[in-house]
Computed example of a mutant assay.
Amino acid sequence: MPAPRPHTLFSFGTLLDERVQNVLFGQAVPCSPASLAGYTTRPLPITDEAVIAASGLDVHLTLTRRLDAEVEGAVLHLTDQDLAAADAYEVDDYARRRVRLSSGESAWAYLDANPLRAAARIAIVGDSIAYGRCDPQGGWTAHLAGAHIAGNEADHRVFNLAIPGSTLAEVAEQTPALLAPRRPDTLLVAAGINDSALPVAVAEARADEPVRIADSLDPLAATALRHDARLVVVGPLWLDEERTRDYEGLRFTEARARALRESLRSWCDAHHVDFLDLWEPLRKSPELFTDGLHPTPEGHRALHRHLAALG
């Protein structure tokens, strides 16, 4: 009895080569024509000798975003074992992520491992830290926007839709109505520390309660896919607990913030979603916070330098 082929993988390059398929999967695999709207390609030099030997090429192509472009290719129908072999074949410059095909169906595709490098139109949702509170220059998101737009003023856009005080649940509720007019290809969810906070009256009793984020991130992932946008989750900052323990009726602790960070990382790993960690740049640097929660202008610049270095 043939093995079930539950996975669909969009490809436009070497994975469509029957010789490569024989090396990876032991046989040619079923394929059907498909296209991917909102993308174009660029060359990517390959240094992995095994990949070069399998494909016969030392330059592959990688997908990058461009409004109103389209890449023609095919969907491969793969078994669990085939998909694992494809993952092993792709070098670290690629990451397997969900995409929406021109037909409206979803499939896996190997995208640039750095989601910001591949992006053109970025929508940012989140809380007061993403909004840029306490920085007259607009915070790390404004620095990101300046650098991103300077890279390609004709095609690059950044829309900061963050709302101070928002939790992930509120972001999930607010975001769907905001995306259509802006046509983003990347949805950057800045998950701040609001989801880690507990009311002071119950904080001690509920201190060990798990930080639940799946009920918010699941619909955000569905929203991103529906709008043909790549979901990117930006993790929470370290906080100065000495100054934030009781803040406007809420209790913020480092332990709860760490729990939120690990919940976000685990969800992203399980769902093949990009997670950009912002914990380390300000860790143990209370002088880079205005009130223990919100970074100073220099703190925001440090966060942007950290994100820029990831590329």
Rank of each mutant, 00 (worst) to 15 (best):
N152I: 10
L220N: 05
H271R: 15
D218G: 06
A203G: 10
L179K: 01
L250A: 14
A221Q: 08
D274L: 03
A255G: 07
V202N: 12
W238V: 01
P199W: 11
L278H: 00
Q174T: 10
A222Q: 13
V189Y: 00
E153D: 12
A172H: 03
E280Y: 02
A205M: 14
D228T: 14
A154C: 12
V189K: 02
R212I: 02
D277H: 04
F252V: 01
D274H: 10
L278C: 06
H272D: 15
S166T: 06
R261P: 02
E280C: 07
R256E: 00
P164L: 05
N152E: 14
I213H: 00
D246V: 15
T223L: 10
V211K: 00
E204N: 12
P164W: 04
E280H: 12
L282S: 06
A214C: 03
P199D: 11
L187M: 08
S263M: 00
R212K: 13
P210N: 07
E209W: 00
T244K: 08
G151Q: 11
V158A: 04
A214G: 03
A259N: 05
H271P: 00
D155W: 14
L282W: 03
A154G: 14
A197I: 05
A177T: 14
R243G: 07
L187F: 09
A203K: 08
D155P: 06
R258M: 08
L161T: 01
V158P: 09
S166I: 00
T186H: 05
V234S: 08
L237W: 01
S216A: 15
D277P: 01
E170N: 11
R245K: 13
P181C: 13
E248A: 15
T175A: 13
R212D: 08
V211S: 01
D218C: 05
I163E: 07
L225K: 02
A197M: 06
L178P: 01
D228L: 11
E173T: 13
A191L: 08
L198M: 13
R230M: 13
V189F: 04
H156S: 11
A203C: 13
